[in-house]
Amino acid sequence: MKKLTGKIIFILPNMVVILSLIFITLWILDIFNPGMNFLGNKISSALLIIFFVLSLINAIATIALERKREE
């Protein structure tokens, strides 16, 4: 269980970094060609929700770990 938690805590920030890079790319593409709807389509919307959830979990995990370390 501890190992799994450790792996998730390692993977989580990387997934947030990856999704951030994807959204930065889509945002730039959207500036050049808004007609393509890079940010508003169904796939982007699903990715955005995943991004929000992962960021939230990542933030909570970071706060919890920081607390544990202080204790």
């Binding site: 970094v17 990856i18 890079l21």
Partner: peptide
């Protein structure tokens, strides 16, 4: 991470 992001794009 950058490579994975590129692949996913």
């Amino acid at each position: 991470d950058v490579l994975v992001a590129g692949l996913l794009i």
